[in-house]
Design a binder for these strands. Structure first.
Lengths: 132, 132
DNA sequence: TTCATTTATAACCTTTTGGTGTGTATCTCA
DNA sequence: TGAGATACACACCAAAAGGTTATAAATGAA
């Protein structure tokens, strides 16, 4: 997909968004978008979900795979994701403790907007490169 | 689009994302996604762009239309958007000063991922409702 | 006994972000 | 003369987010 290919297709979404934002109440939509940001807009959320996307993981797996995260931030972010029903967990009554985390269907559903985001970052990588 | 309609279509994006995140370097993608968050994830960005989506606006227009924003936050956010080439401005050498702001093509291009996000919020509104 | 393992939690500090309030340049109009 | 309009900049404060360190608790291994 090349952004120079056809301006008509490009402006379709723009007009859709324009329409959505003016026809329906502004607040409702922004509110929902903010929910997305509240959940997904934290420093570690994407990385954790990026790890969970490959299947069920233990706390220690995530600790290893999500580079640079501290135990506190890992638990804090997992807690938030569980609260928002993006992630589920199961505690095995063992010692030492064993806990498994995985994405719910709702969690997996974020792949749709995230994929669109990813496509956008690919399409506009030249413009985005500057800010890396 | 109903999320209960067909699970196959639903998991297509999930698998695409999975593939994108594992095949290509993790960091590159997350980095780009974070650029999106850096730009779009601020308190007032969406509201300002939601206003600019309807056309060129003056500072005072935005001040009026974006409810609750302070002059400082308006300018601060506009500055960020200009720095990231989402918004352009033109200063008219008049007194009192007149400045116009509008979305660049790059700025307009965010409509694509935002529209996907908006569709997602509509599709999962029941789950999201809880968190409003 | 002592230690490593695993999943947390609490206390504390630093950094980032957002908010308020003030000041300033310039010209017009009363 | 001096108040009003306009688009900012600067200084300061408050709140939120993120980071570091220490610690608990149970058990099997050394």
């Amino acid at each position: 997909m090349d952004k120079r290919m056809n301006g008509e297709k490009k402006n379709e979404n723009f007009q859709n968004l324009q329409k959505a934002l003016t026809e329906n109440s502004f607040e409702g939509h922004f509110c929902s978008l903010y929910v997305f940001y509240t959940i997904m807009g934290n420093k570690w959320t994407l990385m954790i979900m990026g790890s969970l996307i490959n299947g069920t993981k233990r706390n220690s797996d995530l600790q290893r795979e999500v580079e640079g995260i501290s135990p506190k931030m890992l638990n804090q972010t997992l807690k938030l994701l569980i609260k928002h029903k993006m992630v589920d967990k199961k505690v095995y009554p063992e010692v030492p403790p064993k806990v498994e985390y995985w994405l719910t269907e709702f969690g997996k559903s974020t792949a749709d907007p995230l994929m669109a985001l990813l496509n956008w970052t690919v399409e506009w990588q030249d413009e985005l490169k500057e800010f890396h």
